[in-house]
Design a binder for these strands. Structure first.
Lengths: 130, 130
DNA sequence: CATAGGCATCGACGAGTGTCGATGTATCGA
DNA sequence: TCGATACATCGACACTCGTCGATGCCTATG
């Protein structure tokens, strides 16, 4: 039940008005047959959360953590980043729906949202998700 | 790229007995089994090519094209972008290994690199790519 | 040749991003 | 109650990114 987006469809123009000229390559297919602008923007927002090496490493550390839970102080050192920067990256990934935050006592534990990455992967290659 | 990082003070004394009963949360005991910095950077570069709505729509249009081939003039209109901008996006995706460019006569045809998206999807959810 | 069209490249500009230090907030312990 | 700790937020800075108009290159055609 991930996002059913970007199913590759063939272009079918049933009653397309013919191009008078030789119709070189610019077929005026005005029918928005592709991703809608809104869908593309939502998808891009999630990929943008993955488009940073430090965030990818955070994801890797979190997913390889003993119980798939990590706190900020576990990340600051291996990434060589300041604590505010790590918090910033974590916030971006929480807002992108990739991580969840659970505060226990003084510490904040981050864990993967189950299925979030699979959903994105299914968007990239729909055939691999079945 | 200056990243000095003044002093990552870690609770790590040379002869201090670390209490292992409580073990608050900062226990980086398992050593660096995550993504290396170089791998993360290479991966992020490919996701960065997907982190733009117009590029996602370009991918969608190209993949839904009759023979998975599209020229620049086919893209400029449905995206409401100028021709230089479309060329710029296409160049980014070619350099990211997502598209290939083939020039036939005056026109340049772009098509998907087979397996490129699947490979990225496999990175996100390895179990789904089997 | 000369001309026209498709496309890439260049330079510039505004907006967005990653990083930092400083500061604020909440929780636990002495 | 006070101090220490873990984390979030804020403001600032340099850098990157997306977009455009102008221009140059290449190919086909007359």
């Amino acid at each position: 039940m991930p996002t059913p987006v970007a199913a590759p469809r063939r272009r079918e123009s049933p009653a397309d008005p013919v191009q008078e000229t030789e119709a070189p390559c610019c077929v005026p297919s005005h029918g928005q047959e592709s991703l809608l602008a809104g869908e593309a923007e939502a998808l891009a927002a999630r990929f943008k959360a993955l488009a940073d090496p430090n965030r990818l490493r955070i994801l890797s550390i979190v997913s390889s953590s003993p119980e798939a839970e990590t706190c900020v102080c576990d990340l600051s050192e291996p990434l060589n980043l300041g604590q505010p920067t790590v918090s910033h990256h974590l916030k971006i990934m929480v807002e992108a729906g990739l991580l969840t935050r659970e505060k226990r006592g003084v510490w904040a534990y981050y864990s993967l949202v189950p299925g979030a990455l699979d959903s994105l992967a299914a968007t990239l290659s729909p055939k691999a998700s079945r």
